[in-house]
Design a protein around this nucleic acid. Structure first.
Lengths: 139, 139
DNA sequence: TCAAAAGTTAACGTTGACGTTAACGTTATG
DNA sequence: CATAACGTTAACGTCAACGTTAACTTTTGA
């Protein structure tokens, strides 16, 4: 697999090097891969992840803390999917999954609420635009 | 018209008293009305305006600075609508209106882009939710 | 009428999300 | 193989958007 150094990743994501290190510090990403000398090596999937983070931040207005929770949730799901089921912690796992399902549900509802509000706002702007255009053509 | 004191407005808008004073300091709102003793008196339309500010901030992620510009734009429109047309600055006015129209157009497009991205994100969450629910019922 | 509740300004404190600088180690290349 | 370009950690700086506290005045209700 291709690896990238921090300047490449910065160019590809639009995030500064400082921000990349900061996100790592917060646990939003990991750089397990390092050169002998200690330089960070990023993979394609790291870049994908970073782009998703940017998206979620910009579009949904998520804070970095919210993103941490979200990422943790995703990881729990992945762990579950790839783990061998030993009957002992079956119950515990189910509880976690139900929790996750609830979080997801709330997130989805939040997004729907936001989209409705955005649509209301957009309608107002459209009405305003029409009035302005009328005013222009009346001059 | 009814007037409200700062605590009432705080309750009605969900903003703290500090925030209300801060918004005034920034010029997002005005309190021309004061009691003899200097206490702020808010009108219904002040509250409407504040609620719009909250909406634009939360839903669109506008900064307070962006909101200032937006409010200024609205005021320019209102001034135009209520002003007597003297032929000298007709041209100047038209230029301003066209500018405003363009800003509006860009805002609307931005909202549409965001809404599309949010919808994509929502679809991803829904897919995830389905997988989690399947996992739950398979336990 | 007089305390308690609510308001005022002014100033300093806090938090998130990075920017900037310093002091130093690593890699690439002419 | 030197040196420029790039990387590292650590620490302090900054800016928006308020929170908190202090010291004081105005309103209100028993």
């Amino acid at each position: 697999m291709n690896t990238y150094k921090i300047d490449d990743v910065s160019a590809k994501t639009g995030l500064t090097k400082r921000t990349l290190r900061y996100y790592e510090e917060l646990g939003l990403i990991e750089t397990t891969n390092r050169t002998e000398g200690g330089m960070r090596l990023y993979s394609e999937s790291d870049i994908d992840r970073l782009n998703k983070i940017v998206l979620a931040k910009e579009v949904l207005g998520f804070s970095l803390q919210e993103l941490q929770q979200f990422i943790q949730m995703n990881e729990t799901i992945e762990q579950h999917r790839h783990s061998v089921r030993s009957s002992e912690d079956k119950a515990e796992r189910k509880v976690k999954l139900v929790e996750i399902s609830e979080v997801l549900h709330r997130e989805i509802e939040m997004i729907e609420t936001r989209m409705k509000r955005m649509d209301t706002f957009k309608e107002e702007l459209l009405a305003l635009e029409i009035r302005v255009k009328e005013a222009i053509s009346n001059e």
